[in-house]
Design a protein around this nucleic acid. Structure first.
Lengths: 206, 206
DNA sequence: CCCAAACCTGTCCAAATGGTCAAGATTTGA
DNA sequence: TCAAATCTTGACCATTTGGACAGGTTTGGG
């Protein structure tokens, strides 16, 4: 976009963005305070308004930055690939993302729960095609007898649900397991469980 | 609680509660407006304040009413029961709840995502024991060789995640599937899919 | 029929908060 | 070097909104 990005712009832009994501994830669009975001970013509130016209535009920018990041994971799986290997990789990648940046997942989840008022077209123009393409590949695996038949779209939803759960419901999971934090051990244990259970659930292993 | 519940109290109490749940689910604690809740309930705002000291107490009351409802489903499964049948029933019951009252699930989800500031002790005093008891039963099934070994707690999380997904992410699911609403057909299709996939994933069928 | 308790509501207000603005500082580029 | 562009910020304001309150109405037991 910017042809000659100036130094301070980039630096503060990033600081604000990061602060906004945290704050919006923690309190939602309405609960988040511009002052709190400014404080988190270490800037006066008026400076935040220099970069973002208003709260909503900052919120939308935060959502967009997340969606861009997730889109990078738009790999080019084809009919040729091995279902077991591919789905395993997909699941593990989703788990990794969930633990790497729970705030992103939480922010996105809150927006969806509240009816996706600011990203409704994203759902239709980006997510729907993405899911349909994935589903087509999975369908082709089924047609080729590489795995038993079931609904590919519901399978994708199940993978999303099981993996994002650990980001969105972090507090609940930790409290119930009586742990202070996620650690490497737990993460790989969770990855293994989800991957194995779903792959077996699809009839791909055992 | 009330020994001689007066008529109007109960009626308006329920109306406010229902309105509050909808509104809080849709906008979150901070986004919800007392005026909007009052409007939904068909009462003047001041009347809402007659029943509930302030916004937070109404919010907590709404959360409590949900948790009470969910606690009813505290059935007494024992080691004697059949794992397949019991888990199948559990999954279907969760799916039913998700579709029956998505607002409840959404409200609860939002609270958890935001760190469960108002129900943190509920997580430890009610949910943790509940999960541990369930897990013990599942563990006993595994010990008895009725099903392959895996982590019972993670299994419970997976069931929660896969089922609640359809309440919380309702908009996303519908947009991606290009449907205006959930219908009976879809609901039973989803129930079947989740139940079959998870049961197979546990090594209980096929 | 009476009266106290419960219930209802129009009106008002203090505090919180998003956003503006104008003046000043800093950087850039020619 | 210096002016234009970019950036920074304290002070300020309009609006929204949760909540108080006082005075009114209804209800039900005695």
């Amino acid at each position: 976009m910017a042809r000659n990005p100036s130094r301070p712009r980039d630096k503060n832009f990033a600081k604000i963005m990061s602060a906004a994501r945290e704050e919006f994830a923690l309190r939602g669009l309405n609960g988040a305070r511009m002052q709190a975001i400014a404080d988190r970013a270490g800037l006066p509130k008026a400076n935040v308004h220099y970069y973002f016209r208003n709260k909503v535009s900052l919120y939308v920018a935060a959502l967009n930055s997340i969606m861009e990041k997730w889109n990078d994971f738009f790999d080019g799986t084809t009919d040729e690939d091995d279902p077991t290997e591919t789905l395993d990789l997909f699941i593990r990648e989703k788990v990794r993302l969930a633990f790497e940046d729970p705030s992103a997942s939480k922010l996105f989840a809150t927006e969806i729960i509240q009816g996706a008022p600011y990203i409704s077209n994203y759902l239709e123009e980006v997510m729907r095609p993405w899911v349909n393409e994935r589903a087509k590949v999975i369908q082709s695996w089924m047609d080729a007898g590489k795995m038993p038949r079931s609904d590919p779209v519901l399978l994708i939803f199940m993978i999303w649900a099981s993996t994002q759960h650990y980001a969105d419901f972090q507090v609940q999971v930790l409290r119930i397991m009586d742990r202070p934090d996620y650690d490497e051990n737990l993460v790989s244990q969770i990855s293994d469980f989800i991957s194995e259970t779903i792959l077996r659930g699809c009839g791909l292993i055992n």
